[in-house]
Design a protein around this nucleic acid. Structure first.
Lengths: 202, 202
DNA sequence: AAATGATTTGAACAACGTTCATTATCTGCT
DNA sequence: AGCAGATAATGAACGTTGTTCAAATCATTT
């Protein structure tokens, strides 16, 4: 029975990921301490390094979990909406809502400092691709004649732009749109980009 | 003569800021060490804490310097261009170029982890406002009948969206637009938003 | 039950930001 | 110029951090 070994190991990993997630959610990525996480997960300090190579690797797993939840939230909020423009707006608003509700976890997704030199595994990039594909598929309903490459580019542009608006606005250190008009601005902005002709310019 | 004191103090401050800037540019905000900075600036470790309250406060000063340089780069690249649309595109491309050339310093501007709990001083926010005002003034040439509030909002939306596109694309950890199409996509995107009717929606 | 191999443990380590008693320096007054 | 009082610079020391690794513990097989 080498199964019990694997089970125990996987159990520890998920316990650590959950503990890290809760700690990040409560105190930000900055406040994440190896000693706190291991205490919460009920293992010794060194146990973290038997389950993961690094604190960074643990954070990447938390981020992947967050990305999955974010994808689900966006998908749920826009499920059952046929009109593509309305659907895209619902997706953008769901993105904003998630960033607000799970702010620390969402911030950790884009933190550059802590994960600077780490190579991001492929399965995490796949999770990201899922988000973009959802946008691309909805765009296809608006402009069926757009070729696949252009659609992918447009989807990425739209995602990045929405992310920028949400990102700068929620950041207290930087001057962005005020909270009151944010939803409205976001909606009309998505409308504008989604309905833009193909190709965008000229 | 209490001047000599003030001079020496200010000299040390600028030496520390320059040293910190070079260190961040070379090794990222993550690689910034109090001992390295003070060694480069030619003072003792404790000297940093006579000139600044914190390493964070030093970073804020570096960031303000970076923001000023960024503003200058954008202003220079778009100076003398009368046609507002072309001007805005030039500004966006200059923003992208700056983010590429001074990547680590630009990243430090938006780093959330290191400066999480620090209150950002007003003079730094003023530097930020300058950037937005430049965009708002150019927008005024495109839509003279837009009222001031709407123009400010549009300027912030445009800045944030461009920032998002640049940000996500330059981040290797996240899937963004590929480097080849980036300039082109950015140009047509700015065109689209800048020429959008007032108000954006409906 | 004993032996063997894998895993968990937590004390120890190096590196970090920050502090503070000590030392050095400058300023204003005689 | 010389001295006293304030002011600033110094770097050893402190508390915390992520990470390591010899020792202890546990699981599996003989």
């Amino acid at each position: 029975m080498t199964e019990k070994r694997q089970e125990k190991r996987q159990e520890l990993r998920t316990r650590l990921i959950e503990a890290a997630r809760d700690r990040i959610a409560a105190g930000g990525l900055r406040g994440l301490r190896a000693r706190d996480v291991t205490a919460d997960a009920g293992c010794a300090l060194g146990g973290l390094y038997t389950a993961f190579a690094d604190l960074n690797e643990l954070v990447i797993h938390v981020n992947s979990d967050t990305l999955r939840r974010l994808g689900e939230a966006v998908a749920e909020a826009s499920a059952g909406i046929e009109e593509p423009g309305t659907k895209l707006k619902a997706m953008a608003l769901a993105y904003l809502a998630f960033a607000r509700t799970h702010n620390a976890l969402w911030l950790a997704l884009f933190d550059t400092t802590m994960l600077a030199d780490v190579e991001i595994p492929q399965w995490h990039k796949d999770d990201q691709a899922g988000l973009i594909d959802g946008i691309a598929r909805t765009l296809a309903a608006i402009s069926p004649d757009m070729d696949e490459d252009a659609r992918q580019r447009r989807a990425r542009t739209l995602f990045a732009a929405v992310h920028g608006i949400v990102s700068i606005s929620l950041e207290k250190r930087f001057i962005g749109l005020s909270g009151d008009h944010l939803e409205g601005e976001l909606e009309s902005f998505v409308d504008l980009v989604a309905r833009a002709p193909t190709p965008l310019n000229r």
